[in-house]
């Protein structure tokens, strides 16, 4: 339990650092992004239809039918644990009965999640499951949101297993439990029109960082023993080095979705380690020879 608390504390600190840096950059892409688009040039990754969604003036435009909705996914973009960031401009009309923003964990046209902002300075989180909407976080006023026609806001959401954290214009707005689909889903954007006319939402920068990237340096705890681990990519595999009790062991790893596995040999015995992405790094089990498995926590440095 203490480890969990410590991890959450570190996560909070890390979150603050990320947001602070992020606020200075907006949603412009930094190094290490999994997907990025500043919309300066149209790409075929977005499933635009040219009518309800299209590229114009260096932006992605969503223009649903009156009283309708439009969503555009990035093709073949399935992710489960990730940080999404987008800059979105509200429609020019003064109506406020609409919302637009991020779409994530999309498994098909009838099943996806949204994290939305409205021109009235509210945010909401909703889920479409089998074509039926469920409100996961009701429309809530948030002081950091810009409101009114043509207001631009930054939506930043982190999805991690069953936890969603939402930052709006750099300020934390929501942390809530929502179960992810087993393998996550595609991401994209979503917009609504007001009742009597087609509203236009403008998306500027959009970038995504997958959290299921094992490459890096970690502090490690295993059964009360502290140590370190480093992971570097080698083609489709990874080189893993654990340093525990002053001894280093090298292994080979592979990534399957949100699961990172590694094999190693030490003391003449073969070991297998499996981890899944956590708030602060990776958590999992290590088994060496015939010994019982130990839980191991990796906290990213």
């Amino acid at each position: 339990m203490d480890l969990v608390r410590l991890a959450r504390g570190l996560a909070a600190c890390f979150g603050i650092q990320v947001v602070a840096a992020h606020a200075a950059f907006g949603c412009a892409a930094n190094a290490g992004v999994t997907f990025k688009d500043d919309f300066k040039a149209p790409t075929s990754r977005w499933a635009v239809d040219g009518n309800h969604s299209y590229f114009a003036n260096g932006q992605l435009v969503l223009k649903p039918e009156p009283n309708g909705t439009t969503s555009v996914n990035v093709k073949e973009s399935s992710l489960k644990s990730a940080t999404f960031c987008l800059d979105i401009k509200s429609p020019a009309d003064p109506n406020t009965d609409l919302a637009g923003g991020l779409m994530f964990w999309r498994t098909d046209t009838s099943n996806y999640f949204t994290a939305l902002v409205g021109p009235d300075g509210t945010f909401a989180v909703r889920m479409l499951a089998n074509n039926a909407w469920t409100t996961l976080a009701p429309a809530t006023k948030f002081a950091k949101l810009n409101s009114g026609p043509n207001a631009t806001n930054e939506i930043r959401a982190t999805t991690l297993n069953n936890l969603i954290t939402l930052y709006l214009n750099g300020a934390k707005a929501l942390e809530t439990s929502i179960q992810a689909p087993a393998t996550g889903g595609e991401f994209g954007v979503y917009g609504e029109s007001t009742r009597d006319k087609r509203s236009e939402w403008y998306i500027r920068d959009f970038n995504v960082v997958s959290l299921a990237n094992p490459t890096g340096q970690y502090n490690v705890t295993r059964g009360g023993v502290a140590g370190a681990a480093s992971v570097e990519r080698r083609g489709e595999t990874f080189r893993v080095v654990w340093t525990m009790n002053g001894r280093s062991v090298e292994g080979v790893g592979m990534l399957d979705g949100d699961i990172f596995s590694a094999a190693f040999v030490t003391g003449g015995e073969i070991g297998i380690a499996t981890y899944t992405v956590s708030e602060t790094g990776w958590n999992g089990f290590v088994r060496l020879g015939a010994a019982a498995q130990d839980m191991e926590h990796w906290i990213r440095r």
């Binding site: 087993a182 399957d256 699961i259 596995s261 094999a263 190693f264 073969i270 070991g271 297998i272 499996t274 899944t276 999992g284 089990f285």
Partner: peptide, 9 residues
């Protein structure tokens, strides 16, 4: 582990 079968050899 879940739906993944991992083997070290």
């Amino acid at each position: 582990r879940g739906a993944t079968f991992a083997v070290a050899y």
